[in-house]
């Protein structure tokens, strides 16, 4: 049985006020943040401006400043703050018993049976 939530480990893996990354299929990364007050958030690790790795920005409150051009991005909504406009997708996250869970369907692509692939190949 595959659960709805994907366990990615204990919250203590992330120092408060920083982020770490989770590589996912297709070469993308998810940035998992933990704020100084202990709240956790997950965003696609790409600034809406020039795709800078948000996981490497300075975190203050619930905001991260992109390391490339200093855009401020809300960790809660992924929206650019201030005069900048843009939005990075957020990933549903919950913390339970000290562990971080991401919504599985947002992280792992849907399972495709291998046989279906073969059938498609033959048809082509």
């Amino acid at each position: 049985m595959i659960g709805k939530w994907l366990d990615i480990g204990p919250v203590t893996q992330i120092e408060p006020g920083t982020a770490r990354t989770l590589p996912v299929a297709g070469g993308e990364e998810i940035a998992v943040f933990r704020t100084m007050t202990g709240d956790c958030y997950a965003l696609v690790n790409k600034c809406p401006h020039k795709e800078g790795p948000l996981s490497q920005g300075i975190v203050h409150g619930n905001v991260v400043t992109c390391p490339l051009h200093n855009w401020n991005i809300s960790l809660k909504t992924g929206e650019a703050l201030g005069d900048d406009h843009g939005c990075v997708p957020t990933v549903p996250l919950k913390v339970d018993a000290g562990r971080i869970f991401l919504l599985r369907e947002a992280v792992v692509p849907p399972v495709r049976p291998a046989v279906a692939d073969a059938a498609t190949d033959k048809a082509a």
Partner: peptide
Amino acid sequence: QHIAEVRPLHVET
């Protein structure tokens, strides 16, 4: 290091 690695599930029918 990454916080974790995700291996996509591959189901053989």
